Amino acid sequence: MSNSVNGEVSDSTIFHYHQENEIIWAEYCGGDIHKGFLIGKMINQTLEFTYQHLNQSLEIMTGKCKTHIELNEEDKIELHEKWEWTCKDFSKGKSILIEV
């Protein structure tokens, strides 16, 4: 897992993804994230979604993300994300999430 310095997701954050046809959603928590949710859609090998979570300081954080899906050398799913906060400083970042 890797993340930009302005992100709140870490190696301790666990995502539980779900899919129904092109609709995707997930719950996530751990590390700096107290409780989070995302919802969006899949187009080919790309996910587009919005997310919101409460961090450990109980701040409401929101954002949007475009994610490209890849398989790594170990046949694990990797999510290569480009995201942007839609709150606070509206900064952007990149993350890579790896299937456990």
Rank of each mutant, 00 (worst) to 15 (best):
S91C: 13
S12F: 12
G93S: 15
E81F: 03
I24N: 00
Q56H: 07
K94C: 14
L97E: 10
L97F: 11
S95N: 15
N21H: 01
M1W: 01
W25G: 00
E20N: 08
I60E: 12
H16T: 14
C87V: 07
T50W: 05
I24E: 02
L47R: 05
T46W: 04
W85E: 11
C29N: 09
G30V: 02
F90E: 14
I24F: 01
F37E: 08
V100S: 14
T50S: 10
H18I: 03
E70I: 10
I23Y: 03
H18Y: 09
S95R: 12
I96R: 03
D11L: 12
F49S: 02
H80E: 07
K88I: 12
F37C: 05
G63T: 00
V100C: 10
T50V: 08
G30Q: 05
H80G: 05
K66Y: 11
T46H: 11
T50L: 05
L58H: 15
H34V: 06
L54C: 01
I33Q: 02
M1E: 02
N55I: 05
L58I: 07
D75K: 14
M61W: 01
D11G: 15
N6W: 03
I69W: 01
D32A: 11
G31E: 07
V5I: 11
M61Q: 04
S57F: 09
F49R: 02
S91W: 10
K64G: 07
H68Q: 15
H80Y: 07
K92F: 05
K64H: 10
I39F: 04
T67A: 08
C29E: 13
I14G: 06
W25H: 03
N3K: 02
Y51F: 06
E84S: 03
